[in-house]
Design a binder for these strands. Sequence first.
DNA 1: TGAGGCTAGTACATGTATTAACTAGTATCT
DNA 2: AGATACTAGTTAATACATGTACTAGCCTCA
Lengths: 177, 177
Amino acid sequence: MTAGDPGGLDFWSFVELANRRLAEEYGFKHQLATELLLTLNRASNIVTYDLEASVHRPHGLSWSGFRLLFVTWLAGPLEAKKAAELTGMSRAAVSNLAKTLVADGSLNRESGVRDGRSVLLSLTDAGHRDMIEVFREHNEREDEWAGVLSPEEQRILVMLLDKLVTSRDQFDVRGRN
Amino acid sequence: MTAGDPGGLDFWSFVELANRRLAEEYGFKHQLATELLLTLNRASNIVTYDLEASVHRPHGLSWSGFRLLFVTWLAGPLEAKKAAELTGMSRAAVSNLAKTLVADGSLNRESGVRDGRSVLLSLTDAGHRDMIEVFREHNEREDEWAGVLSPEEQRILVMLLDKLVTSRDQFDVRGRN
DNA sequence: TGAGGCTAGTACATGTATTAACTAGTATCT
DNA sequence: AGATACTAGTTAATACATGTACTAGCCTCA
């Protein structure tokens, strides 16, 4: 083995090991960047997985399904395209998801009047009732997560994450269709 | 429409609108937590998607494929289970992915000697060469992303993200199998 | 030593994402 | 008005992750 016994590695000792080898053996330079993106990715995955498993699946919703209903709930009836932008999904994903949510009875889909191509999404009454309940649980869970940071820390974190993604106009970023 | 014309909504005005309605119309309390998790999720998705589209897909790798090869590269030959822990995937995902990466010729899979149930993953020579090149591009791209924050800000961000996920022992978090 | 329980990995069915190709409606420009 | 280009949405093929159920190997302890 080149890296010693990896049996006891946890995430942080892996990051440390990785950074050391990347720098010393291969001469890569941007270690802090690697560490940052690894940590960002991991934090998001852990939190998302927990919310989906503990809140949404028990209500028969996928994480994506929740996100789509959430923006539809709060941003009023909106076009599928807008929903895709706000949720960060592709238009095709919204189209597919909408189909199942309509079948489940939580979403309405009607053609737009101004633009005949567009589709307006809105919640059904049942969908609205469900969202209030699901979001109640979701919000409690979110608070448990966020609560390990002070409000000040939370604000800093939001600010830094925002800065990270909004400054991306500085280079050519690949986004979804 | 209950929410006014949503046509001009971008992510941040949506968050603002959502928070206002959640608080005023429905009486939900943990707005900062909602904002934090929405922002975290979004930042991670945007950065990940960009890296995958601009670096990994052109090399014929999925994001997950890259992650698996990455930990295998740096943490030496390791058991599939360990790889699952480090990448945050399920064991089944590692098993499936390994199958395709072995077929692609970048990964070796051999049975463990100590434990006959386990499987040891390691890079082939070709896989090793590929990783060096792919990671070079990956690391440059990471640096472009991280570079919009000062090193000090990057460190704070890493620290806060770490605090967020490592304090989770305080409550019962759902993790993958 | 052998029964029961545990663990690593895999196969399968399912769900859901992606891209690319397509349809149909809209906008523009002459 | 008509040709052309563009845009919204859907569909189809494909990729991949999940949970569940299973197999096979290990461990313990009586």
